[in-house]
Protein backbone atom coordinates (compact mmCIF):
# COMPACT_ATOMS: atom_id res chain seq x y z
CA UNK A 1 0.00 0.00 0.00
CA UNK A 2 1.42 3.36 -1.03
CA UNK A 3 1.70 5.94 1.75
CA UNK A 4 0.84 8.75 -0.64
CA UNK A 5 -2.50 7.16 -1.46
CA UNK A 6 -3.24 6.64 2.22
CA UNK A 7 -2.40 10.29 3.02
CA UNK A 8 -4.62 11.42 0.17
CA UNK A 9 -7.50 9.29 1.42
CA UNK A 10 -7.12 10.59 4.97
CA UNK A 11 -7.28 14.13 3.61
CA UNK A 12 -10.41 13.16 1.67
CA UNK A 13 -11.93 11.80 4.87
CA UNK A 14 -11.07 15.01 6.74
CA UNK A 15 -12.54 17.16 4.00
CA UNK A 16 -15.76 15.13 3.97
CA UNK A 17 -15.88 15.30 7.78
CA UNK A 18 -15.39 19.07 7.85
CA UNK A 19 -18.21 19.52 5.35
CA UNK A 20 -20.48 17.35 7.54
CA UNK A 21 -19.44 19.42 10.55
CA UNK A 22 -20.74 22.63 8.94
CA UNK A 23 -24.13 20.95 8.51
CA UNK A 24 -24.16 19.18 11.86
CA UNK A 25 -23.02 22.26 13.85
CA UNK A 26 -26.12 24.24 12.87
CA UNK A 27 -28.40 21.26 13.41
CA UNK A 28 -27.04 20.46 16.85
CA UNK A 29 -26.96 24.14 17.90
CA UNK A 30 -30.63 24.53 17.01
CA UNK A 31 -31.52 21.31 18.80
CA UNK A 32 -29.44 22.20 21.83
CA UNK A 33 -30.83 25.73 22.27
CA UNK A 34 -34.40 25.38 21.06
CA UNK A 35 -35.00 21.64 21.45
CA UNK A 36 -36.15 21.59 17.84
CA UNK A 37 -35.60 18.85 15.25
CA UNK A 38 -35.18 20.69 11.96
CA UNK A 39 -35.51 18.36 8.97
CA UNK A 40 -35.47 21.38 6.65
CA UNK A 41 -31.80 22.04 7.42
CA UNK A 42 -30.89 20.32 4.14
CA UNK A 43 -33.08 22.81 2.28
CA UNK A 44 -30.96 25.67 3.68
CA UNK A 45 -27.89 23.87 2.31
CA UNK A 46 -29.63 23.78 -1.08
CA UNK A 47 -30.56 27.49 -0.82
CA UNK A 48 -26.89 28.32 -0.21
CA UNK A 49 -25.76 26.33 -3.26
CA UNK A 50 -28.40 27.85 -5.55
CA UNK A 51 -27.68 31.38 -4.33
CA UNK A 52 -23.96 30.88 -4.94
CA UNK A 53 -24.51 29.37 -8.42
CA UNK A 54 -26.91 32.14 -9.45
CA UNK A 55 -24.77 35.02 -8.23
CA UNK A 56 -21.57 33.44 -9.57
CA UNK A 57 -23.20 32.98 -12.98
CA UNK A 58 -24.47 36.58 -13.02
CA UNK A 59 -21.30 38.29 -11.78
CA UNK A 60 -18.61 35.79 -12.75
CA UNK A 61 -17.25 35.82 -9.22
CA UNK A 62 -17.38 32.78 -6.97
CA UNK A 63 -16.53 34.94 -3.96
CA UNK A 64 -19.56 37.16 -4.40
CA UNK A 65 -21.55 33.95 -4.76
CA UNK A 66 -20.15 32.71 -1.46
CA UNK A 67 -21.21 35.93 0.28
CA UNK A 68 -24.63 35.65 -1.35
CA UNK A 69 -24.97 32.05 -0.15
CA UNK A 70 -24.34 33.08 3.48
CA UNK A 71 -26.78 35.96 3.21
CA UNK A 72 -29.48 33.99 1.40
CA UNK A 73 -29.33 31.00 3.74
CA UNK A 74 -29.32 33.21 6.85
CA UNK A 75 -32.26 35.20 5.50
CA UNK A 76 -34.16 32.03 4.53
CA UNK A 77 -33.42 30.61 7.98
CA UNK A 78 -34.60 33.74 9.80
CA UNK A 79 -37.75 33.88 7.68
CA UNK A 80 -38.40 30.19 8.32
CA UNK A 81 -37.95 30.70 12.06
CA UNK A 82 -40.24 33.72 12.27
CA UNK A 83 -43.05 32.35 10.12
CA UNK A 84 -43.13 28.64 10.97
CA UNK A 85 -40.58 27.36 13.47
CA UNK A 86 -41.52 29.83 16.22
CA UNK A 87 -44.91 28.14 16.54
CA UNK A 88 -43.31 24.74 17.07
CA UNK A 89 -41.15 25.17 20.20
CA UNK A 90 -43.94 24.25 22.56
CA UNK A 91 -45.12 21.31 20.45
CA UNK A 92 -43.72 17.79 20.68
CA UNK A 93 -41.09 16.38 18.33
CA UNK A 94 -43.61 14.65 16.08
CA UNK A 95 -45.27 17.96 15.16
CA UNK A 96 -41.83 19.51 14.54
CA UNK A 97 -40.81 16.66 12.26
CA UNK A 98 -44.06 16.89 10.30
CA UNK A 99 -43.88 20.66 9.90
CA UNK A 100 -40.21 20.77 8.93
CA UNK A 101 -40.73 17.86 6.53
CA UNK A 102 -43.44 19.96 4.89
CA UNK A 103 -40.88 22.78 4.64
CA UNK A 104 -38.56 20.44 2.70
CA UNK A 105 -41.32 19.88 0.15
CA UNK A 106 -42.08 23.60 -0.06
CA UNK A 107 -38.41 24.51 -0.57
CA UNK A 108 -37.78 21.71 -3.10
CA UNK A 109 -40.81 22.47 -5.25
CA UNK A 110 -40.28 26.22 -4.91
CA UNK A 111 -36.69 25.87 -6.09
CA UNK A 112 -37.78 23.65 -8.96
CA UNK A 113 -40.40 26.21 -9.88
CA UNK A 114 -37.84 29.02 -10.02
CA UNK A 115 -34.76 27.21 -11.40
CA UNK A 116 -36.15 24.11 -13.16
CA UNK A 117 -34.92 20.53 -12.80
CA UNK A 118 -31.76 20.79 -14.88
CA UNK A 119 -28.75 21.07 -12.51
CA UNK A 120 -27.00 24.46 -12.39
CA UNK A 121 -23.38 25.08 -13.27
CA UNK A 122 -21.00 26.20 -10.53
CA UNK A 123 -17.25 25.79 -10.75
CA UNK A 124 -14.45 26.42 -8.28
CA UNK A 125 -12.74 29.85 -8.37
CA UNK A 126 -9.60 30.01 -10.57
CA UNK A 127 -7.55 31.06 -7.53
CA UNK A 128 -8.12 27.64 -5.93
CA UNK A 129 -8.06 25.57 -9.13
CA UNK A 130 -4.63 24.00 -8.80
CA UNK A 131 -3.35 21.04 -6.85
CA UNK A 132 -0.66 20.98 -4.17
CA UNK A 133 2.03 18.29 -4.13
CA UNK A 134 1.89 15.62 -1.43
CA UNK A 135 4.85 13.66 -0.06
CA UNK A 136 5.29 10.58 -2.24
CA UNK A 137 4.77 12.34 -5.56
CA UNK A 138 0.99 12.57 -5.50
CA UNK A 139 -1.07 15.78 -5.56
CA UNK A 140 -4.15 17.05 -3.76
CA UNK A 141 -6.70 19.59 -5.07
CA UNK A 142 -6.14 23.01 -3.50
CA UNK A 143 -9.90 23.62 -3.27
CA UNK A 144 -10.38 20.65 -0.97
CA UNK A 145 -7.54 21.90 1.24
CA UNK A 146 -9.37 25.24 1.36
CA UNK A 147 -12.57 23.47 2.50
CA UNK A 148 -10.64 21.82 5.33
CA UNK A 149 -9.23 25.25 6.25
CA UNK A 150 -12.65 26.91 6.26
CA UNK A 151 -14.07 24.08 8.37
CA UNK A 152 -11.31 24.39 10.98
CA UNK A 153 -11.75 28.19 11.03
CA UNK A 154 -15.50 27.79 11.58
CA UNK A 155 -14.91 25.26 14.37
CA UNK A 156 -12.51 27.63 16.17
CA UNK A 157 -14.84 30.57 15.56
CA UNK A 158 -17.83 28.72 16.99
CA UNK A 159 -15.79 27.62 20.00
CA UNK A 160 -14.76 31.23 20.71
CA UNK A 161 -18.28 32.50 20.08
CA UNK A 162 -19.79 30.10 22.57
CA UNK A 163 -17.15 30.31 25.29
CA UNK A 164 -16.01 33.95 25.03
CA UNK A 165 -18.88 36.19 23.95
CA UNK A 166 -22.08 37.51 25.47
CA UNK A 167 -24.14 35.85 22.72
CA UNK A 168 -22.39 32.57 23.46
CA UNK A 169 -23.14 32.95 27.14
CA UNK A 170 -26.82 33.46 26.34
CA UNK A 171 -26.80 30.43 24.04
CA UNK A 172 -25.32 28.30 26.82
CA UNK A 173 -27.81 29.71 29.29
CA UNK A 174 -30.64 29.00 26.87
CA UNK A 175 -29.48 25.38 26.59
CA UNK A 176 -29.53 24.80 30.33
CA UNK A 177 -32.58 26.78 31.47
CA UNK A 178 -34.66 28.73 29.04
CA UNK A 179 -37.35 30.00 31.49
CA UNK A 180 -34.69 31.41 33.76
CA UNK A 181 -32.86 33.47 31.15
CA UNK A 182 -36.22 34.72 29.89
CA UNK A 183 -37.03 35.82 33.42
CA UNK A 184 -33.64 37.58 33.60
CA UNK A 185 -34.72 39.89 30.80
CA UNK A 186 -32.99 38.28 27.79
CA UNK A 187 -35.03 38.61 24.62
CA UNK A 188 -35.48 34.90 23.94
CA UNK A 189 -37.37 35.38 20.67
CA UNK A 190 -34.57 37.39 19.07
CA UNK A 191 -31.94 35.04 20.48
CA UNK A 192 -33.70 32.07 18.88
CA UNK A 193 -33.96 33.85 15.52
CA UNK A 194 -30.24 34.73 15.65
CA UNK A 195 -29.22 31.17 16.52
CA UNK A 196 -31.43 29.79 13.78
CA UNK A 197 -30.01 32.20 11.19
CA UNK A 198 -26.47 31.33 12.31
CA UNK A 199 -27.12 27.60 11.85
CA UNK A 200 -28.73 28.32 8.50
CA UNK A 201 -25.76 30.39 7.34
CA UNK A 202 -23.37 27.54 8.17
CA UNK A 203 -25.53 25.13 6.14
CA UNK A 204 -25.62 27.63 3.27
CA UNK A 205 -21.83 27.96 3.39
CA UNK A 206 -21.46 24.18 3.20
CA UNK A 207 -23.91 24.05 0.29
CA UNK A 208 -22.05 26.72 -1.68
CA UNK A 209 -18.62 25.16 -1.13
CA UNK A 210 -19.81 21.66 -1.97
CA UNK A 211 -21.94 22.89 -4.87
CA UNK A 212 -18.74 23.76 -6.69
CA UNK A 213 -17.54 20.17 -6.30
CA UNK A 214 -20.79 18.40 -7.03
CA UNK A 215 -23.96 19.32 -8.86
CA UNK A 216 -26.28 22.11 -7.78
CA UNK A 217 -29.72 20.56 -8.04
CA UNK A 218 -33.03 20.24 -6.27
CA UNK A 219 -32.93 17.60 -3.54
CA UNK A 220 -29.16 17.86 -3.00
CA UNK A 221 -29.63 18.54 0.73
CA UNK A 222 -31.45 15.43 1.87
CA UNK A 223 -28.63 12.84 1.60
CA UNK A 224 -26.34 15.21 3.54
CA UNK A 225 -29.06 15.81 6.13
CA UNK A 226 -29.24 12.09 6.94
CA UNK A 227 -25.46 11.99 7.45
CA UNK A 228 -25.61 15.14 9.59
CA UNK A 229 -28.15 13.42 11.85
CA UNK A 230 -25.86 10.40 12.12
CA UNK A 231 -23.07 12.80 13.12
CA UNK A 232 -25.04 14.50 15.89
CA UNK A 233 -26.36 11.20 17.23
CA UNK A 234 -22.77 9.91 17.44
CA UNK A 235 -21.41 13.16 18.86
CA UNK A 236 -24.18 13.70 21.37
CA UNK A 237 -27.18 15.85 20.52
CA UNK A 238 -26.67 19.50 21.38
CA UNK A 239 -22.87 19.40 21.63
CA UNK A 240 -20.75 21.40 19.18
CA UNK A 241 -17.60 19.53 20.23
CA UNK A 242 -19.45 16.28 19.72
CA UNK A 243 -20.52 17.43 16.26
CA UNK A 244 -16.89 18.14 15.34
CA UNK A 245 -15.56 14.80 16.59
CA UNK A 246 -18.57 12.90 15.18
CA UNK A 247 -18.22 14.57 11.78
CA UNK A 248 -14.52 13.80 11.49
CA UNK A 249 -15.09 10.19 12.60
CA UNK A 250 -17.92 9.69 10.09
CA UNK A 251 -15.89 11.32 7.30
CA UNK A 252 -12.82 9.17 7.97
CA UNK A 253 -14.72 5.91 8.51
CA UNK A 254 -16.76 6.36 5.35
CA UNK A 255 -13.84 7.35 3.12
CA UNK A 256 -11.31 4.86 4.45
CA UNK A 257 -13.94 2.09 4.52
CA UNK A 258 -14.76 2.62 0.86
CA UNK A 259 -11.06 2.56 0.06
CA UNK A 260 -9.72 -0.21 2.32
CA UNK A 261 -12.56 -2.77 2.47
CA UNK A 262 -12.47 -3.84 -1.19
CA UNK A 263 -8.66 -4.08 -0.93
CA UNK A 264 -8.94 -6.23 2.19
CA UNK A 265 -11.62 -8.48 0.68
CA UNK A 266 -9.62 -8.87 -2.54
CA UNK A 267 -6.96 -10.81 -0.61
CA UNK A 268 -9.26 -13.82 -0.42
CA UNK A 269 -11.84 -13.39 -3.21
CA UNK A 270 -12.04 -12.35 -6.87
CA UNK A 271 -11.62 -8.62 -7.64
CA UNK A 272 -15.12 -8.31 -9.08
CA UNK A 273 -16.84 -9.86 -6.06
CA UNK A 274 -14.57 -7.94 -3.68
CA UNK A 275 -15.47 -4.66 -5.38
CA UNK A 276 -19.18 -5.37 -5.19
CA UNK A 277 -19.32 -6.77 -1.63
CA UNK A 278 -16.79 -4.24 -0.35
CA UNK A 279 -18.90 -1.37 -1.68
CA UNK A 280 -22.04 -2.76 -0.05
CA UNK A 281 -20.41 -3.26 3.35
CA UNK A 282 -18.61 0.11 3.20
CA UNK A 283 -21.91 1.92 2.72
CA UNK A 284 -23.18 0.37 5.98
CA UNK A 285 -20.08 1.13 8.06
CA UNK A 286 -21.10 4.49 9.52
CA UNK A 287 -24.51 3.14 10.55
CA UNK A 288 -22.84 0.14 12.20
CA UNK A 289 -20.56 2.59 13.98
CA UNK A 290 -23.54 4.66 15.09
CA UNK A 291 -25.24 1.53 16.47
CA UNK A 292 -22.06 0.65 18.40
CA UNK A 293 -21.79 4.14 19.88
CA UNK A 294 -25.45 4.03 20.90
CA UNK A 295 -24.99 0.63 22.53
CA UNK A 296 -22.00 1.77 24.59
CA UNK A 297 -22.92 5.43 25.18
CA UNK A 298 -26.63 5.86 24.50
CA UNK A 299 -26.44 9.68 24.72
CA UNK A 300 -23.54 9.99 22.27
CA UNK A 301 -19.83 10.58 22.76
CA UNK A 302 -20.14 14.12 24.16
CA UNK A 303 -23.62 14.17 25.63
CA UNK A 304 -24.70 17.63 26.69
CA UNK A 305 -25.43 17.97 30.39
CA UNK A 306 -29.02 17.60 31.57
Amino acid sequence: MQTALLIEQILNGLQFGVMLFLMAAGLTLIFGVMGLINLAHGSLYMVGAFACATVAAATGSFWLGLVASLAAAAAAGALMEITVIRRLYERDHLDQVLATFALILVFSEGTRWIFGSIPLYLNIPPLLAGAIPLPGGSAYPLYRVAIIGVGIAVAIGLHLLITRTRLGMRIRAGESDREMIGALGVDIRTLYTVVFALGAALAGLAGAMVGALQSVQVGMGEPVLILAFVVIVIGGIGSIHGALVGALLVGLIDTLGRFLLPVALATFMGPSAAASIGASVASMLIYVFMALVLAIRPRGLFAAAG
Binding site: G13, Q15, S138, S272
Partner: peptide, 22 residues
Protein backbone atom coordinates in the same frame (compact mmCIF):
# COMPACT_ATOMS: atom_id res chain seq x y z
CA UNK B 1 -6.48 -1.44 -13.74
CA UNK B 2 -9.31 -1.69 -11.23
CA UNK B 3 -13.02 -2.15 -10.79
CA UNK B 4 -15.09 -0.12 -8.32
CA UNK B 5 -18.76 0.01 -7.36
CA UNK B 6 -19.85 3.28 -5.74
CA UNK B 7 -23.02 4.03 -3.80
CA UNK B 8 -26.11 4.96 -5.80
CA UNK B 9 -26.54 8.71 -5.38
CA UNK B 10 -22.96 9.26 -4.18
CA UNK B 11 -21.76 12.80 -4.78
CA UNK B 12 -18.14 12.83 -3.65
CA UNK B 13 -15.65 10.77 -5.64
CA UNK B 14 -12.37 12.00 -4.13
CA UNK B 15 -11.61 8.54 -2.69
CA UNK B 16 -12.20 6.80 -6.02
CA UNK B 17 -10.21 9.39 -7.98
CA UNK B 18 -7.26 8.90 -5.61
CA UNK B 19 -7.40 5.16 -6.25
CA UNK B 20 -7.52 5.69 -10.02
CA UNK B 21 -4.49 7.97 -9.81
CA UNK B 22 -2.56 5.31 -7.91
Amino acid sequence: AGEVYTQLGQTDYAAEIAQIRA
